[in-house]
Design a protein around this nucleic acid. Structure first.
Length: 152
DNA sequence: GCCAACGTTGGC
DNA sequence: GCCAACGTTGGC
């Protein structure tokens, strides 16, 4: 089983929303690196941290589970969607999504400022300046370190 | 709201 | 295939 971290803006979709809906298609990802990971590497039962970005206190707030492996992101072919991509076709969907499920909130949120201060986490793309990757792998060591920081 | 850093696009 | 221009991300 692998570990991941996925970013979302809480104003758009945050932990409160996930807890309410329980399962959510993770659509709208329009970055090839992130797409490839969702399409090729994420497996049913993998766990992922939910990270709140672009908000007052950016940080990790909860845990999700992959409930469905990569499949075409239909929002790309929907002209009404803000994620519409004219280049996406039925033959070549171009973009993929997974379904994630709510697992639990962390006992306390772990803000980015604390993640940056940890030597064990210095290898995470998340803490590197200018990194915009919205889906990234997390090592078991990093996963455990963050759980500890969250008070689990 | 600002702006640095980055990925993508498209002209050549 | 290069690279400038552009749009986006996301911390602050």
């Amino acid at each position: 089983m692998a570990y991941w971290l996925m970013k979302s803006e809480p104003d758009v979709f945050g932990i409160d929303d996930l807890e309410r809906v329980r399962i959510e298609p993770w659509d709208g990802v329009r970055n090839y690196q992130a797409r490839n990971m969702m399409r090729d590497q994420m497996k049913l039962g993998d766990l992922a941290f939910l990270y709140h970005s672009n908000c007052e206190v950016p940080g990790i707030v909860g845990i999700m589970r992959i409930e469905r492996e990569g499949y075409p992101d239909e929002t790309a072919r929907d002209p009404e969607s803000k994620y519409h991509d004219p280049a996406a076709t039925t033959d070549n969907p171009r973009w993929y999504r997974v379904d994630v499920g709510f697992v639990r909130r962390l006992p306390r949120n772990v803000p980015l400022s604390e993640l940056k201060a940890r030597a064990e986490l210095a290898g995470m793309p998340l803490v590197r300046k200018g990194n915009r990757l919205s889906v990234m792998p997390v090592t078991p060591q990093e996963w455990q370190c963050i759980l500890n920081m969250a008070g689990e």
